[in-house]
């Protein structure tokens, strides 16, 4: 229904179609674009950046979060630094990225990693610190090795927080990757949007914006699904599985 309203507004030039083209025109244009290799390449480039950003952030944030969360001393020692660095907008680092990296994958991945690490780190350490003391006492009374405690008690118990952290980090990673593509000119959907704008191809630009939105929706859905499966034992999910 909303789409119909927009279509009408654009067709009647109520809103100049230079600004807001009719949805049907956008659809036609993007379907034509999909026949070309560069369309798919842009999506792959963006997804690769997103995955690398999220993956590297996870490799940094999860182990660090476990370490920080399981020692009061390390927690206190790192807290002021994390609390200060976390709200620093990662886009502030764009000029530095200009200098240090070529306009390629590395620059945008760097931005994504910097931005995605913090929410994941904070959620992980929060989850680890919130493990029920009795669950740890139980493990300790049975002389469970440290390694098994981490993988079978600490991590599963912190999983709800980890899932939240990963979902936020995924969104953030996508945002920063596309930022990198627009601002740094790294290949991907963001660059395609910018080029379409420079070429005054308004329909195509909207088409790519739509694709970016669809990627966002899709990744959200994937994470929600994975979360439901991984946390089926958790109280928040039980109603839906049993």
């Amino acid at each position: 229904m909303v789409l119909a309203v927009i279509e009408l507004a654009a067709r009647t030039e109520l809103i100049p179609s230079r600004f807001l083209p009719p949805p049907t025109a956008v659809a036609v244009r993007i379907v034509a674009e999909a026949a070309q290799g560069r369309f798919w390449l842009a999506i792959v480039d963006t997804l690769a950046g997103w995955a690398l950003g999220l993956g590297i952030a996870a490799l940094i944030a999860i182990p660090a979060g476990i370490l920080i969360g399981s020692s009061e001393f390390v927690y206190r020692a790192t807290r002021p630094i994390i609390e200060f660095l976390r709200p620093v907008p990662s886009v502030a680092l764009i000029p530095l990225v200009f200098l240090l990296f070529s306009p390629s994958l590395e620059g945008k991945v760097f931005l994504a990693v910097f931005a995605a690490t913090w929410p994941l780190l904070v959620q992980t350490q929060y989850g680890i610190r919130n493990v029920l003391p009795l669950q740890l006492d139980t493990a300790r009374s049975f002389q469970i090795s440290r390694h098994r405690v981490i993988f079978r008690v600490l991590l599963p118990s912190a999983l709800p927080y980890l899932a939240t952290g990963l979902r936020i980090a995924s969104t953030v990673s996508l945002i920063l990757v596309i930022t990198g593509e627009i601002v740094l000119g790294a290949p991907g959907i963001g660059k395609a949007i910018n080029e379409a704008r420079e070429g005054a191809a308004v329909e195509l630009m909207y088409g790519y914006v739509l694709i970016a939105g669809m990627l966002g929706v899709m990744l959200n859905a994937v994470f929600a699904g994975v979360e439901r499966r991984a946390l089926h034992w958790h109280a928040s999910q039980r109603g839906t599985t049993t």
Partner: peptide, 14 residues
């Protein structure tokens, strides 16, 4: 070995 009163917290729900 130890058995606690609070079984719901000492058994691992996952």
């Amino acid at each position: 070995a130890l058995v606690f009163q609070d079984y719901s917290a000492s058994l691992y729900p996952w």
